[in-house]
């Protein structure tokens, strides 16, 4: 840039090819000073540990003795001889497959009800958003535990309204996971806000033109709203799915950290926690972590590949 020649020494901007400093670090070596905290964190807390856990996943490290190389034994055991891994996988996939679509459908329906110049929108929006802001705390998990307990609110309501005597939902392996799905769907507020922002991007004149042509509301939804919203749907689906794979707190609180009853709430992260920090099988838990990375990575790659066929980016 022309301005650099006028820069005074303290400016941090010097002409190209100045001293050794510049040849090593570029035009503004000060950049590395600013980058230093991140570099330390990246190398020491992200890259280093990630490589270390890759190494540990091939060992039997247990925190007490030094790690012994066991080759792929951990991975072989996970793939062939670990019923709890299978249970955790089943529970987590079921949770993802149920909670993410339901959450997104609710979010979209409510956002669409909002979009037509509705009176009182800020209030409604605030009410629907509140659960997703509070939802990740232990207090809400505790509340959920009490809602779906044998003598909880849900059963009281069922008894008073319909005379039905409900089971203890959280301690029945047939229902416990569904209480967590409901908890997740209850927090549809943030995808709803993202949908709302997406709906506002759709030009009003498209609907006006469709009205003039006599297109029904249904047709407008499938021919205008849904296609133009696909980038937002895609974004929400990817974010929510990755998040659902990592779910931990509610299952931990509802099952006292056990993932029970009968492994019915054994989320993948909870299983990893138990192996790593309950039994101190650090090597085995590292292998579990890397399998999760591969699963999430594969899912993300698949989403981006499939996006070509259903996401409209023609604006």
């Amino acid at each position: 840039m022309a301005t650099t020649s006028i820069a005074r020494p303290q400016a941090g901007v010097r002409p190209e090819g100045g001293g050794l400093l510049h040849r090593l670090f570029g035009r503004q070596p000060a950049g590395y000073l600013f980058l230093l905290p991140w570099l330390v964190g990246f190398l020491g807390l992200t890259l280093g540990p990630a490589l270390a856990s890759l190494y540990l996943s091939f060992t039997d490290y247990n925190l007490l003795e030094s790690p012994n190389w066991v080759g792929a034994a951990n991975y072989v055991r996970i793939a062939t001889a670990d019923p709890r891994f299978v249970a955790a996988m089943r529970v987590t996939l079921l949770y993802v497959v149920l909670s993410v679509p339901l959450k997104l459908v609710f979010a979209l329906l409510v956002a669409m009800a909002f979009n037509r110049g509705l009176k009182g929108l800020p209030l409604y929006r605030a009410i629907f958003y509140l659960p997703s802001l509070l939802g990740s705390s232990v207090a809400i998990a505790v509340l959920w535990r009490q809602l779906f307990a044998g003598d909880g609110l849900v059963n009281m309501a069922l008894w008073q309204l319909f005379g039905i005597e409900g089971p203890s939902w959280i301690s029945n392996p047939r229902y416990s996971l569904y209480t967590l799905v409901i908890l997740s769907v209850w927090q549809f507020g943030s995808p709803m806000i993202i949908f709302l922002a997406g709906l506002r991007q759709i030009p009003v004149d498209m609907y006006e033109a469709a009205n003039l042509d006599g297109a029904s509301k249904m047709r407008q939804f499938f021919k205008i709203t849904l296609p133009l919203l696909t980038p937002v749907i895609f974004f929400n689906a990817v974010i929510q799915t990755i998040d659902a794979f990592k779910a931990f707190t509610p299952a931990f609180i509802i099952s006292d950290g056990q993932g029970g009853p009968v492994n019915s709430t054994l989320f993948y992260t909870l299983y990893l926690y138990q192996e790593g920090f309950g039994f101190f099988r650090m090597g085995y838990a590292s292998a579990l972590a890397w399998i999760l990375v591969v699963i999430i990575g594969a899912f993300t790659a698949f989403s981006f590949l499939s996006a070509r066929y259903w996401v409209h980016y023609d604006e």
Binding site: F25, A30, F42, T46, A50, A52, S53, L292, V293
Partner: peptide, 26 residues
């Protein structure tokens, strides 16, 4: 404007997708 900026930036974006599980134990 420093040497390697784009390289580091790409790595930084890469960590966005990395689940915390892999760094947890080390």
């Amino acid at each position: 404007d420093f040497r390697g900026r784009n390289f580091w930036f790409a790595l930084m974006l890469g960590t966005l997708m990395l689940p915390y599980h892999v760094t947890l134990i080390p």
